[in-house]
């Protein structure tokens, strides 16, 4: 019968994102972002050096800037109920870190109670006006 052990990991060293609002600070430094639509993340390592965009927190509003030409307006909301972030662990030899019989173990690495929701359409953005004039 397929089975996996499930453990709960309590991060001992906080690794929060600097400047992330306090409500989003979690012990592992994780936050959830939800957007309507699809965000195409590049899978090539070369493109991973380029910034994807920016998250800007202004009082109760959060802006998500994607590239230089689009932005979305969002807000921080409570997750009801909260969610646990599960991570599957599979070692190279097929045995789980916790000795699961099927070589698999799962751990809850974080409990997340807030998320940033972007429920509006992206707004077009004209950023470099001087460039366009020239």
């Amino acid at each position: 019968m397929p089975s996996a052990t499930l453990s709960v990991t309590r991060p001992s060293i906080p690794s929060s994102i600097p400047n992330l609002p306090q409500v989003l600070q979690t012990p592992s430094g994780l936050a959830l972002v939800e957007i309507q639509g699809t965000l195409h993340l590049s899978t090539t390592s070369s493109s991973s050096s380029d910034p994807l965009g920016r998250l800007v927190f202004e009082k109760s509003t959060v802006w998500l800037y994607i590239g230089n030409h689009q932005r979305m307006e969002g807000a921080v909301v409570d997750l009801k109920p909260p969610v646990g972030l599960l991570r599957r662990q599979i070692t190279d030899d097929g045995k789980g870190e916790h000795g699961a019989p099927d070589g698999e173990a799962v751990e809850i690495v974080e409990v997340i109670r807030k998320k940033i929701v972007f429920s509006t359409r992206p707004e077009p953005l004209v950023q470099d006006v001087s460039f366009r004039r020239s």
Binding site: N19, P21, L41, T43, L52, G53, G84, L85, R87, R88
Partner: peptide, 19 residues
């Protein structure tokens, strides 16, 4: 305003699930 620059991280995402 507080600002965070976002970079993509595409490694091993299939190992995560939300419960």
């Amino acid at each position: 305003a507080q600002e965070i620059t976002l970079y993509p991280d595409t490694s091993k995402i299939s190992h995560f699930h939300l419960l």
